[in-house]
Simulated scan of single mutants.
Amino acid sequence: MKKILISLINLFYPNLCRLCKRVLIEGETAVCLDCLYHLPRTGYQNYADNPVVHLLIDRQALEAATALYYYEQGGQVQKLVHLIKYHGHKELGYQFGRQAAREWREADHPFQKADFIVPLPLHAKKQRRRGYNQSEWIARGIAEETKIPLLTTAIRRDVMTESQTRLKGYNRWLNVKDIFSVTEPERLAGKHILLVDDVITSGSTVGACMDALSAIPGIRISVFALTMAAQ
């Protein structure tokens, strides 16, 4: 009876791929396998020396860094990020966080050795308006798969800045300078943390967060971004 009821629901209210709107088949969740296959992957997780590392290389506490997909204006990855970030589909962030973590396990990636997972924080006002932090949901997926503890209160965003989208170079750095503060430094001392973000463009925002964390004695910081803007 339950299977018949589910079939009737799917007939009148089909579960559609969030990206292409094709009806999902059994085994597919939120995004169809065809869309997943065609998302532009970076492959950076296979290389210790990669473009994400190059963006953050001047941060002394940097341990490792990578991004899963290329972000291009008008592309499917941009659509995916916007669904997660602006349209309430936080479950997509969770799903892709889990997927990334599975791949690290297969590759025996250094991220697996992190002591804590820390999502890049939003300003409290922006998080209240949005209802959630998209980076936290990506981090939740990673934590679920890796069983590494998730910390959401270790660092705070004190300043609500304007969007980085239209800013260039030095102005990007000025826009995010000193906008983060660490709230639990003693908990992070001597630890390896995995900092999680949704999109890396110039690296200035995540770099500012790393700068705040770098004052903690003995800290090591790895960075994962779901996407990276094509350079």
Rank of each mutant, 00 (worst) to 15 (best):
D49W: 10
F96M: 05
A65N: 02
E91G: 08
A65S: 00
P40C: 12
Q112C: 14
R41W: 08
P121F: 00
Y70D: 07
Y86I: 09
T29Q: 12
C32N: 01
R41F: 12
K90Q: 13
H87Q: 15
G97Y: 00
N50G: 08
P110R: 04
V118T: 07
P40A: 13
G75H: 06
C17Y: 00
L16K: 05
C32W: 06
K90E: 08
K79C: 03
D58K: 09
Y47D: 15
R59C: 14
K79D: 03
L80G: 02
G93A: 12
Y71P: 10
E72Q: 12
P119T: 07
V118M: 08
L80M: 10
R105P: 07
H82W: 02
Q112A: 11
E103Q: 08
I57Y: 14
Y70I: 09
W104R: 02
V23L: 10
A67G: 03
Q127K: 14
P119Y: 09
G43H: 07
A30K: 05
L24W: 08
P119F: 10
V53W: 13
W104N: 06
L122Q: 06
K21T: 15
V81E: 01
H82V: 14
R98P: 09
L24V: 08
A64I: 14
A101C: 09
A107V: 11
A48N: 10
K79Q: 10
Y44Q: 03
L24C: 07
A48Q: 13
E28W: 08
A61T: 13
Q60R: 12
I25A: 13
A67E: 13
Y71N: 10
L92Y: 00
G75C: 06
L83N: 04
Q112P: 04
P51D: 08
E28I: 09
I117P: 00
A114T: 07
A100Y: 01
Q76P: 10
D34N: 12
I117W: 02
L83P: 01
Q112V: 11
K125F: 13
D34Q: 12
C20L: 06
Q73E: 15
P121M: 02
G43D: 14
G74M: 04
C17T: 04
L24H: 05
P51M: 06
E103V: 07
E26F: 11
Q73V: 15
V52R: 01
H54S: 13
D115S: 07
L39T: 03
L56S: 00
D108W: 03
L62R: 09
G75L: 05
A107W: 08
Y69A: 01
G97L: 01
H82Q: 15
Q76E: 13
Y37K: 14
T29K: 04
G74S: 05
D108H: 09
E72I: 11
Y86K: 09
R41C: 13
H89M: 14
A114D: 09
K126R: 15
A64E: 10
R59E: 15
W104I: 05
